[in-house]
Write a protein that binds this DNA or RNA. Structure first.
Lengths: 119, 119
DNA sequence: ATTATTGTATTATATCAATAATACAGTTAC
DNA sequence: GTAACTGTATTATTGATATAATACAATAAT
């Protein structure tokens, strides 16, 4: 699985975003155990401390829970996952439309551009 | 005019984005003189050095040209402005669709969400 | 002609982020 | 029982960013 970490924004933020997306889109299965901090850091080619920081952010959001000597586990609260997914999508749409509107692009043009995209 | 500078990303990047948007959407008129570095910095409530850094980025892009003791001037190359506006919009659409797709949201749902937005 | 304004450069300081290198106590695996 | 693995914490160093405080030469304004 690809970890595309750039250096235009804090790495730990990008890790939070990637992990959150994987939980919300089902790449990581509800209730299952994550790779260890060290292994995740290895996969993403970042320092374990940075991955640890990202995981602690996810725990604040309730998306994972850590069992000290066993590992980090994805939440089994499916409603939380659905709600966060909806909220994230809504935020993305709002931010995108705000930027596009400010550029003076119409809604009609925007939808035409999106229709050309592949998804 | 509102300068909404947050501290979640480098300030000079946000200044570049805001200035670029204003040039591309016509808020700043082609060929005219900008406020001085110091006055722009005052408006945006940032340090003059930070505003200067943003302006030098815009000059690299060809959107402004500085006349050392007279001021900074918006380019009069209208084609450049049109092209950059189109490119920026295209990039925004691509980035947005990439994120939405990764969340597992369909194109149909996305367009419904956008249709609810006000613009 | 003098004064104020222009972009630009320099130096210093403070903060945040990232990495590195360990360390430790509890648990799991064998 | 021992060894390996777990999350977590600590300390140090480096680099990027932001601000501050000046400075200067060229031009514009008066």
């Amino acid at each position: 699985m690809a970890w595309e970490i750039k250096n235009d924004r804090p790495v730990y933020i990008q890790l939070v975003e990637e992990l959150e997306t994987r939980i919300l889109n089902g790449t990581y299965t509800v209730g299952t155990k994550l790779l260890s901090v060290r292994d995740l850091a290895g996969e993403a080619q970042v320092n374990p401390n940075t991955m640890q920081k990202a995981l602690s952010e996810l725990e604040k959001k309730g998306l994972i829970s850590s069992r000290r000597t066993s590992g980090n586990y994805i939440t089994d609260d499916e409603k939380l996952i659905r709600d966060l997914r909806t909220e994230l999508a809504s935020n993305e749409v709002g931010a995108f439309c705000g930027k596009i509107k400010k550029l003076g692009i119409t809604k009609k043009e925007t939808i035409e551009l999106i229709n050309k995209e592949d998804f």
